[in-house]
Design a protein around this nucleic acid. Structure first.
Lengths: 215, 215
DNA sequence: CAGAAAACCGTACCGCCGGTGCAGTTTTCG
DNA sequence: CGAAAACTGCACCGGCGGTACGGTTTTCTG
């Protein structure tokens, strides 16, 4: 009765590879079971439909990504006590992690599924939505700590800043895919980092406008 | 022989509505022809397969969106001669346009199709990719004009800034969809605007760090 | 070791979907 | 009127997600 979990994990592995490479819709059950060496009945024993497979993939993905983020921002907390520096360091490490992936990052399951919404039922959509909200909440909590310690250069809602970081990641993933250039994702993560930095660190005095045009 | 174009347009209209509402994969040909009141043979007379339908949608979308952008940034050019102000005004008008859409913006065809890549052949993918590149090139040319007139607060490549704006739009669309909140898109467009503004307009003198922690 | 539950297999079947092929018909325009 | 354009009608194909259900093997537990 433990073999069941092994098979389940194998199905998820194969499905995940397929989804990241070709998208959810293009990853057929027939294909998965062929690679897993099981029958259709076996597949439907573990997942009663494709939506359940999607939920399984998302749940695993959330866990793994959460662990990665914990490691990265845990390391950032080791390196600095300052909340602003922690976020800046964490984002840098995150970007480096993405850049270091051989052949580019594999693509985010959540981002992939966000755009294939229509293939799924409410439960899966709710799951995708809650994962995005988790990300926003994570960054928001970090930003609120920063706001408590630093003056904002402009009055910007912490939620907006948090969503901007998440947007940069999602947008970076989508643009990396569209352009076939994996370097866009880490680049845009660093752009988001720089945004935060600028919001909380006022410009150096020597950086004044060349002309008086700047109102 | 002009009725042919009318039917073609009607097919595109129906398909576009379906794709924006449910995605490309979930919009079936059977469904389109039923709504258009034609037969399957009639459909395949106009589009020899679904990829050609996708190309037709993208071509029309590109034209329309290009016109909108021309209007918006043409208006911005009327309102200011300064290249920085033109971009800032244009992005504000763009964001307002998106916010004003009843029930939220309809969703971007390009963004939708970027994430359903696997459903299409090379031609369609190339088209999606070239549209994204057009956007980047458009913002880039504006930013290069600004760079020629303003000092950059930090040394950032104009291409990166351009891609950041495009990313904010794509990310905003995807997050609006994921969270079911259309206000995220205009919000994030304005965040991108603010980023540009900050990059070229140094902070006011009163905005200094509350503590010496900011390195 | 027995027995029950879990983890499958085999097979036949369903409806939807994208797509093909092709002959025949109507519409439109010059 | 005639030719081209714009369809219709119908039969068919393979792949897909999914259902139904009876039978078999594997695995853990008492």
């Amino acid at each position: 009765m433990r073999k069941g979990n092994e098979t389940r994990e194998r199905i998820l592995d194969i499905a995940e590879a397929g989804v990241l490479a070709k998208g959810f819709g293009a990853t057929s059950i027939d294909e998965i079971i062929a690679e897993a060496g099981i029958t259709k009945s076996g597949f439907f024993y573990h997942f009663h439909d494709k939506n359940e497979l999607a939920r399984g993939l998302l749940a695993r993905h959330r866990g793994r990504l959460g662990q990665l983020v914990d490691e990265i921002f845990g390391r950032a907390a080791e390196l600095s006590d300052d909340p602003l520096q922690q976020l800046l360091i964490g984002l840098t490490l995150f970007a480096e992690h993405m850049a270091a992936m051989p052949g580019g990052h594999p693509g985010c399951l959540v981002a992939t599924m966000s755009y294939q919404e229509q293939l799924f039922n409410r439960e899966v959509r709710a799951m995708v939505s809650s994962i995005v909200e988790d990300w926003n909440a994570f960054f928001r909590s970090m930003i609120e700590k920063i706001v408590a310690a630093y003056p904002l250069r402009e009055p910007v809602d912490p939620g907006r800043i948090a969503r901007n970081i998440t947007c940069a990641i999602d947008g970076g993933i989508i643009m990396s895919k569209s352009l076939g250039d994996p370097s866009v994702l880490p680049e845009q993560m660093l752009m988001a980092r720089n945004y935060v930095k600028m919001l909380f660190q006022p410009a150096a005095l020597h950086a004044v406008p060349r002309e008086a045009l700047a109102a």
